[in-house]
Design a protein around this nucleic acid. Structure first.
Lengths: 149, 149
DNA sequence: TATTGTTATACTCTATAACTATA
DNA sequence: TATAGTTATAGAGTATAACAATA
Protein backbone atom coordinates (compact mmCIF):
# COMPACT_ATOMS: atom_id res chain seq x y z
CA UNK A 1 0.00 0.00 0.00
CA UNK A 2 1.33 3.36 -0.96
CA UNK A 3 -1.60 5.48 0.21
CA UNK A 4 -2.78 6.46 3.65
CA UNK A 5 -6.38 6.21 4.84
CA UNK A 6 -8.70 9.10 4.07
CA UNK A 7 -9.03 11.99 6.45
CA UNK A 8 -12.62 11.13 7.27
CA UNK A 9 -11.70 8.17 9.45
CA UNK A 10 -11.79 8.45 13.20
CA UNK A 11 -8.39 6.91 13.72
CA UNK A 12 -6.97 10.19 12.47
CA UNK A 13 -8.23 11.73 15.68
CA UNK A 14 -5.55 9.83 17.57
CA UNK A 15 -2.14 11.47 17.58
CA UNK A 16 -0.46 8.14 18.28
CA UNK A 17 -2.07 6.51 15.28
CA UNK A 18 -1.25 9.50 13.06
CA UNK A 19 2.32 9.32 14.28
CA UNK A 20 2.57 5.62 13.43
CA UNK A 21 1.00 6.06 9.98
CA UNK A 22 2.91 9.13 8.93
CA UNK A 23 6.12 7.69 10.32
CA UNK A 24 5.60 4.62 8.16
CA UNK A 25 4.85 6.79 5.16
CA UNK A 26 7.97 8.84 5.79
CA UNK A 27 9.99 5.66 5.90
CA UNK A 28 8.44 4.39 2.64
CA UNK A 29 9.18 7.73 1.00
CA UNK A 30 12.76 7.59 2.17
CA UNK A 31 13.19 3.91 1.30
CA UNK A 32 11.97 4.62 -2.21
CA UNK A 33 14.44 7.46 -2.68
CA UNK A 34 17.33 5.32 -1.38
CA UNK A 35 16.46 2.66 -3.94
CA UNK A 36 18.09 4.77 -6.62
CA UNK A 37 21.42 4.13 -4.86
CA UNK A 38 20.52 0.50 -4.11
CA UNK A 39 20.66 1.20 -0.39
CA UNK A 40 18.18 0.65 2.44
CA UNK A 41 17.54 2.83 5.48
CA UNK A 42 19.82 0.78 7.72
CA UNK A 43 22.68 1.31 5.25
CA UNK A 44 21.99 5.02 5.17
CA UNK A 45 21.93 5.16 8.96
CA UNK A 46 25.21 3.29 9.26
CA UNK A 47 27.03 5.42 6.67
CA UNK A 48 25.74 8.74 7.99
CA UNK A 49 26.51 7.85 11.59
CA UNK A 50 30.01 6.67 10.68
CA UNK A 51 30.57 9.95 8.86
CA UNK A 52 29.41 11.93 11.87
CA UNK A 53 31.11 10.09 14.69
CA UNK A 54 34.12 8.45 13.05
CA UNK A 55 35.24 4.82 13.44
CA UNK A 56 33.26 2.83 15.99
CA UNK A 57 32.59 -0.71 17.19
CA UNK A 58 29.63 -2.57 15.74
CA UNK A 59 27.74 -2.41 19.02
CA UNK A 60 28.18 1.33 19.40
CA UNK A 61 27.28 1.90 15.80
CA UNK A 62 24.22 -0.34 15.91
CA UNK A 63 22.88 1.45 18.97
CA UNK A 64 23.46 4.85 17.41
CA UNK A 65 21.55 3.87 14.31
CA UNK A 66 18.78 2.23 16.32
CA UNK A 67 19.19 -1.31 15.06
CA UNK A 68 19.61 -4.50 17.03
CA UNK A 69 23.34 -5.38 16.91
CA UNK A 70 22.47 -8.95 15.94
CA UNK A 71 20.59 -7.76 12.87
CA UNK A 72 23.31 -5.26 12.10
CA UNK A 73 25.89 -7.88 11.12
CA UNK A 74 24.30 -8.50 7.72
CA UNK A 75 23.89 -4.80 7.07
CA UNK A 76 27.61 -4.30 7.58
CA UNK A 77 28.38 -7.40 5.50
CA UNK A 78 26.52 -5.84 2.61
CA UNK A 79 28.27 -2.49 2.96
CA UNK A 80 31.59 -4.27 3.18
CA UNK A 81 30.82 -6.34 0.06
CA UNK A 82 30.33 -3.05 -1.79
CA UNK A 83 33.55 -1.76 -0.27
CA UNK A 84 31.87 1.20 1.39
CA UNK A 85 33.12 0.26 4.87
CA UNK A 86 35.97 -1.76 6.37
CA UNK A 87 36.27 -3.82 9.56
CA UNK A 88 39.58 -3.58 11.37
CA UNK A 89 40.68 -5.33 14.56
CA UNK A 90 40.43 -3.05 17.57
CA UNK A 91 43.92 -2.25 18.91
CA UNK A 92 43.31 -3.14 22.55
CA UNK A 93 40.18 -5.32 22.58
CA UNK A 94 40.36 -8.34 20.32
CA UNK A 95 36.63 -8.99 20.56
CA UNK A 96 35.84 -5.76 18.79
CA UNK A 97 35.80 -4.75 15.17
CA UNK A 98 36.57 -1.15 14.40
CA UNK A 99 34.25 -0.11 11.61
CA UNK A 100 35.16 2.77 9.33
CA UNK A 101 34.31 4.31 5.98
CA UNK A 102 36.44 3.52 2.94
CA UNK A 103 37.28 6.23 0.40
CA UNK A 104 34.41 4.98 -1.76
CA UNK A 105 32.17 5.27 1.26
CA UNK A 106 33.22 8.82 1.88
CA UNK A 107 32.69 9.73 -1.75
CA UNK A 108 29.14 8.40 -1.56
CA UNK A 109 28.35 10.73 1.34
CA UNK A 110 27.86 13.80 -0.83
CA UNK A 111 25.16 12.10 -2.87
CA UNK A 112 23.66 10.66 0.30
CA UNK A 113 23.38 14.04 1.98
CA UNK A 114 21.76 15.82 -0.95
CA UNK A 115 19.40 12.89 -1.48
CA UNK A 116 18.47 12.96 2.19
CA UNK A 117 17.76 16.66 2.21
CA UNK A 118 15.83 16.63 -1.04
CA UNK A 119 13.71 13.68 0.07
CA UNK A 120 12.91 15.29 3.40
CA UNK A 121 11.99 18.61 1.84
CA UNK A 122 9.76 16.80 -0.60
CA UNK A 123 7.94 14.99 2.18
CA UNK A 124 7.54 18.02 4.44
CA UNK A 125 6.55 20.37 1.59
CA UNK A 126 2.95 20.72 2.83
CA UNK A 127 4.27 22.50 5.94
CA UNK A 128 5.67 26.03 6.08
CA UNK A 129 9.30 26.38 7.18
CA UNK A 130 8.08 27.55 10.59
CA UNK A 131 5.79 24.53 10.92
CA UNK A 132 8.62 22.23 9.87
CA UNK A 133 10.73 23.70 12.65
CA UNK A 134 7.88 23.26 15.14
CA UNK A 135 7.48 19.62 14.12
CA UNK A 136 11.18 19.00 14.44
CA UNK A 137 11.27 20.53 17.92
CA UNK A 138 8.30 18.50 19.13
CA UNK A 139 9.71 15.25 17.76
CA UNK A 140 13.11 16.04 19.26
CA UNK A 141 11.56 16.59 22.65
CA UNK A 142 9.70 13.26 22.45
CA UNK A 143 12.82 11.52 21.21
CA UNK A 144 14.95 12.96 23.97
CA UNK A 145 12.60 11.93 26.75
CA UNK A 146 12.04 8.46 25.36
CA UNK A 147 15.74 7.74 25.09
CA UNK A 148 16.45 9.10 28.55
CA UNK A 149 14.89 6.03 30.19
CA UNK B 1 15.14 -3.33 19.85
CA UNK B 2 12.99 -1.51 22.32
CA UNK B 3 15.09 1.63 22.63
CA UNK B 4 15.76 4.45 20.24
CA UNK B 5 19.21 5.72 19.34
CA UNK B 6 20.78 8.30 21.61
CA UNK B 7 20.16 11.96 21.08
CA UNK B 8 23.77 12.62 20.21
CA UNK B 9 23.52 11.06 16.77
CA UNK B 10 23.30 13.23 13.70
CA UNK B 11 20.39 11.36 12.21
CA UNK B 12 18.25 13.07 14.83
CA UNK B 13 18.86 16.29 12.93
CA UNK B 14 16.61 15.00 10.16
CA UNK B 15 12.91 15.50 10.73
CA UNK B 16 12.09 12.69 8.31
CA UNK B 17 14.28 10.24 10.18
CA UNK B 18 12.86 11.37 13.54
CA UNK B 19 9.38 10.91 12.14
CA UNK B 20 10.14 7.38 10.98
CA UNK B 21 11.80 6.39 14.27
CA UNK B 22 9.24 7.88 16.60
CA UNK B 23 6.42 6.58 14.43
CA UNK B 24 7.87 3.09 14.77
CA UNK B 25 8.27 3.55 18.52
CA UNK B 26 4.67 4.75 18.79
CA UNK B 27 3.54 1.66 16.94
CA UNK B 28 5.60 -0.62 19.20
CA UNK B 29 4.17 1.10 22.25
CA UNK B 30 0.66 0.65 20.95
CA UNK B 31 1.25 -2.93 19.81
CA UNK B 32 2.52 -3.81 23.25
CA UNK B 33 -0.55 -2.35 24.93
CA UNK B 34 -2.89 -4.19 22.55
CA UNK B 35 -1.17 -7.46 23.43
CA UNK B 36 -3.08 -7.52 26.72
CA UNK B 37 -6.25 -8.01 24.64
CA UNK B 38 -4.52 -10.36 22.20
CA UNK B 39 -5.11 -7.92 19.36
CA UNK B 40 -2.82 -6.28 16.84
CA UNK B 41 -2.95 -2.77 15.37
CA UNK B 42 -4.83 -3.92 12.26
CA UNK B 43 -7.52 -5.47 14.47
CA UNK B 44 -7.80 -2.28 16.46
CA UNK B 45 -8.08 -0.21 13.30
CA UNK B 46 -10.79 -2.44 11.87
CA UNK B 47 -12.88 -2.47 15.05
CA UNK B 48 -12.58 1.26 15.70
CA UNK B 49 -13.37 2.16 12.11
CA UNK B 50 -16.37 -0.17 12.05
CA UNK B 51 -17.61 1.44 15.25
CA UNK B 52 -17.22 4.90 13.78
CA UNK B 53 -18.60 4.40 10.30
CA UNK B 54 -20.96 1.46 10.67
CA UNK B 55 -21.15 -1.61 8.40
CA UNK B 56 -18.92 -1.42 5.33
CA UNK B 57 -17.46 -3.52 2.55
CA UNK B 58 -14.04 -5.05 3.04
CA UNK B 59 -12.48 -2.76 0.46
CA UNK B 60 -13.89 0.40 1.99
CA UNK B 61 -12.89 -0.74 5.44
CA UNK B 62 -9.39 -1.74 4.40
CA UNK B 63 -8.78 1.62 2.78
CA UNK B 64 -10.09 3.48 5.81
CA UNK B 65 -7.75 1.57 8.10
CA UNK B 66 -4.82 1.98 5.75
CA UNK B 67 -4.22 -1.67 4.96
CA UNK B 68 -3.98 -3.37 1.59
CA UNK B 69 -7.32 -5.13 1.01
CA UNK B 70 -5.47 -8.30 0.07
CA UNK B 71 -3.76 -8.41 3.44
CA UNK B 72 -6.96 -7.49 5.19
CA UNK B 73 -8.71 -10.81 4.55
CA UNK B 74 -6.80 -12.66 7.24
CA UNK B 75 -7.28 -9.86 9.72
CA UNK B 76 -11.03 -10.13 9.28
CA UNK B 77 -10.85 -13.94 9.40
CA UNK B 78 -9.23 -13.67 12.81
CA UNK B 79 -11.78 -11.18 14.10
CA UNK B 80 -14.55 -13.39 12.79
CA UNK B 81 -13.06 -16.47 14.43
CA UNK B 82 -13.28 -14.60 17.72
CA UNK B 83 -16.84 -13.59 16.86
CA UNK B 84 -16.09 -9.88 17.09
CA UNK B 85 -17.32 -9.19 13.54
CA UNK B 86 -19.64 -10.82 11.02
CA UNK B 87 -19.64 -10.94 7.23
CA UNK B 88 -23.04 -10.67 5.57
CA UNK B 89 -23.90 -10.76 1.87
CA UNK B 90 -24.45 -7.30 0.47
CA UNK B 91 -28.13 -6.86 -0.50
CA UNK B 92 -27.58 -5.58 -4.04
CA UNK B 93 -24.03 -6.56 -4.97
CA UNK B 94 -23.27 -10.22 -4.56
CA UNK B 95 -19.53 -9.66 -4.84
CA UNK B 96 -19.45 -7.71 -1.64
CA UNK B 97 -19.38 -8.71 1.98
CA UNK B 98 -20.98 -6.34 4.40
CA UNK B 99 -18.81 -6.34 7.51
CA UNK B 100 -20.25 -5.36 10.87
CA UNK B 101 -19.57 -5.61 14.58
CA UNK B 102 -21.19 -8.35 16.64
CA UNK B 103 -22.49 -7.66 20.13
CA UNK B 104 -19.26 -9.04 21.54
CA UNK B 105 -17.40 -6.69 19.25
CA UNK B 106 -19.36 -3.72 20.47
CA UNK B 107 -18.79 -4.71 24.07
CA UNK B 108 -15.06 -4.78 23.47
CA UNK B 109 -15.10 -1.19 22.24
CA UNK B 110 -15.24 0.36 25.69
CA UNK B 111 -12.05 -1.41 26.75
CA UNK B 112 -10.49 -0.58 23.40
CA UNK B 113 -11.21 3.12 23.69
CA UNK B 114 -9.88 3.52 27.21
CA UNK B 115 -6.82 1.46 26.33
CA UNK B 116 -6.22 3.60 23.26
CA UNK B 117 -6.49 6.85 25.17
CA UNK B 118 -4.37 5.67 28.07
CA UNK B 119 -1.66 4.35 25.76
CA UNK B 120 -1.54 7.56 23.77
CA UNK B 121 -1.39 9.74 26.85
CA UNK B 122 1.39 7.59 28.19
CA UNK B 123 3.39 7.99 25.00
CA UNK B 124 2.82 11.72 24.64
CA UNK B 125 3.38 12.47 28.33
CA UNK B 126 6.67 14.33 27.69
CA UNK B 127 4.72 17.01 25.83
CA UNK B 128 2.45 19.63 27.40
CA UNK B 129 -1.24 19.55 26.36
CA UNK B 130 -0.58 22.55 24.12
CA UNK B 131 2.36 20.83 22.48
CA UNK B 132 0.32 17.68 22.00
CA UNK B 133 -2.30 19.75 20.21
CA UNK B 134 0.38 21.38 18.06
CA UNK B 135 1.78 17.98 17.12
CA UNK B 136 -1.65 16.68 16.26
CA UNK B 137 -2.38 19.68 14.04
CA UNK B 138 0.91 19.38 12.19
CA UNK B 139 0.49 15.66 11.61
CA UNK B 140 -3.10 16.18 10.49
CA UNK B 141 -1.99 18.75 7.96
CA UNK B 142 0.66 16.39 6.60
CA UNK B 143 -1.80 13.52 6.56
CA UNK B 144 -4.42 15.55 4.75
CA UNK B 145 -2.08 16.70 2.01
CA UNK B 146 -0.57 13.29 1.49
CA UNK B 147 -3.94 11.60 1.11
CA UNK B 148 -5.20 14.29 -1.26
CA UNK B 149 -2.98 13.02 -4.08
C1' DT C 1 30.50 -13.50 34.61
C1' DA C 2 29.79 -10.11 31.07
C1' DT C 3 30.56 -8.43 26.38
C1' DT C 4 31.48 -8.58 21.11
C1' DG C 5 30.38 -10.52 17.16
C1' DT C 6 28.02 -14.24 14.84
C1' DT C 7 24.49 -17.69 13.08
C1' DA C 8 19.99 -19.38 12.85
C1' DT C 9 15.23 -18.84 13.37
C1' DA C 10 10.62 -16.89 13.55
C1' DC C 11 7.00 -13.58 13.39
C1' DT C 12 4.88 -9.38 11.70
C1' DC C 13 4.21 -6.12 8.14
C1' DT C 14 4.18 -5.01 3.51
C1' DA C 15 3.92 -5.85 -1.46
C1' DT C 16 2.68 -8.37 -5.61
C1' DA C 17 0.79 -11.92 -8.83
C1' DA C 18 -2.91 -14.64 -10.06
C1' DC C 19 -7.41 -16.57 -9.47
C1' DT C 20 -13.06 -16.62 -8.94
C1' DA C 21 -17.28 -14.63 -9.09
C1' DT C 22 -19.69 -11.09 -9.99
C1' DA C 23 -20.77 -6.34 -12.07
C1' DT D 1 -13.45 -4.52 -18.87
C1' DA D 2 -13.46 -3.46 -14.02
C1' DT D 3 -14.32 -4.59 -9.15
C1' DA D 4 -14.73 -7.56 -4.57
C1' DG D 5 -12.89 -11.03 -2.29
C1' DT D 6 -9.48 -14.64 -1.93
C1' DT D 7 -5.09 -17.41 -1.95
C1' DA D 8 -0.27 -17.85 -2.11
C1' DT D 9 4.20 -16.06 -1.90
C1' DA D 10 8.16 -13.22 -1.04
C1' DG D 11 10.76 -9.49 1.04
C1' DA D 12 11.97 -6.25 4.72
C1' DG D 13 11.98 -5.23 9.59
C1' DT D 14 12.14 -6.88 14.10
C1' DA D 15 12.94 -10.08 17.95
C1' DT D 16 14.97 -13.94 20.51
C1' DA D 17 17.98 -18.04 21.56
C1' DA D 18 22.35 -19.99 21.46
C1' DC D 19 27.21 -20.07 20.48
C1' DA D 20 32.58 -18.90 20.25
C1' DA D 21 36.07 -15.84 21.43
C1' DT D 22 37.59 -12.62 24.54
C1' DA D 23 37.44 -9.46 28.54
Amino acid sequence: MSSLPETTDLLGGSTGYLLAMIGAESRRHFTHALNTLELRPAHYGALMTLAASGPASQQTLARSVGIDPRNFVQTLDQLQARQLIQRHPHPSDRRRHQVQLTEAGQQLLTQLRTLGERTEQDFLAPLTPHEQQQLHDLLSKLHRTITED
